[in-house]
Amino acid sequence: MKRQIVRLVSTATAVGIAALAGVVMTPGSAIAAAATKCSASQHKEFDTIGANLDLYVTLCVHRSSGNDYNSYADISWKDGGGGLSAGMEDLVLNLRLERNDADYRNENINIAGSVNYKDSGSMRVTGARYHSNTTGGWTADGHIAWDIQNDGAGGGTWGLGGSPSI
């Protein structure tokens, strides 16, 4: 009798575990693993009135575990801090979240104040999130529109290389 009870309890436990595993492992709305991919660091030297400003930019695309995507840029500089008289009149980062080269988020962030204020520094500029269950082909891309203060030459655009896709 004891053996039958032990066998029944063991069988019931095994069936319960198998049923639970089936519920837990049943495919449904799978949660994506978080992922981030970044470009290599990109450098440009600007011939400002004072010391030449060296700007470094890395573009990244990020997917959260809940399928929220966003782009961000890690920016650092040295030889800045020239102030408004000798630094950058305009230094605007255009940051885009793209999927297969179509824009999903497009933002312009003025970074001239930070660069003109401090000789060297770094910051992260994060773009707005976009929720999508569509996977593949998501990238960060952008450019920097610039104009050196008091040089009389006008400005330009520095096209940045985008991130690898996730």
Rank of each mutant, 00 (worst) to 15 (best):
M1P: 07
R3I: 10
I5Y: 12
R7G: 14
R7Q: 07
L8I: 09
L8F: 12
V9C: 10
V9Y: 08
T11H: 06
A12V: 05
T13A: 11
T13Q: 09
T13F: 12
G16M: 07
I17T: 14
V24L: 13
M25C: 11
T26F: 15
T26I: 02
P27Y: 10
P27G: 09
G28Q: 15
A32M: 00
A32V: 04
A34P: 14
A34Q: 14
A35W: 01
A35E: 09
T36C: 05
T36L: 06
T36M: 14
S39L: 08
S39A: 11
A40C: 04
Q42I: 06
K44P: 10
E45C: 04
F46K: 04
F46L: 10
D47C: 07
I49Y: 15
I49A: 11
G50K: 09
L53I: 05
D54E: 14
Y56K: 08
V57G: 02
T58K: 07
T58P: 03
C60Y: 00
C60P: 10
H62R: 08
S64Q: 12
G66M: 05
N67Y: 13
D68N: 13
N70H: 15
N70S: 05
S71C: 00
K78D: 09
K78P: 02
G80A: 01
L84H: 12
L84K: 12
S85P: 06
S85Q: 07
G87L: 05
G87S: 11
M88Y: 00
M88R: 01
E89N: 07
D90K: 12
D90I: 02
L91C: 09
L93T: 06
L93R: 03
N94S: 13
L95M: 08
N100A: 08
N100F: 08
N100I: 06
D101M: 06
D101H: 00
D101S: 11
D103K: 14
D103G: 03
Y104T: 01
Y104N: 06
R105C: 02
E107S: 13
N108T: 07
N108R: 11
I109K: 12
V115L: 00
V115E: 00
N116S: 03
Y117G: 00
K118F: 08
D119R: 06
S120E: 06
G121V: 04
S122M: 09
S122D: 10
S122T: 13
S122Y: 11
M123E: 06
R124V: 13
R124Y: 05
R129F: 10
Y130Q: 04
H131S: 15
H131G: 08
H131Q: 15
S132N: 13
S132V: 08
S132G: 09
N133V: 08
N133P: 05
T134A: 15
G136P: 14
G137F: 12
G137C: 06
A140G: 06
H143E: 12
H143M: 14
H143W: 15
N150E: 13
D151M: 03
G152R: 01
G154Y: 01
G156Q: 03
G156C: 03
W158F: 08
W158N: 03
L160A: 05
L160Y: 02
L160W: 01
L160D: 10
G162A: 00
P164G: 07
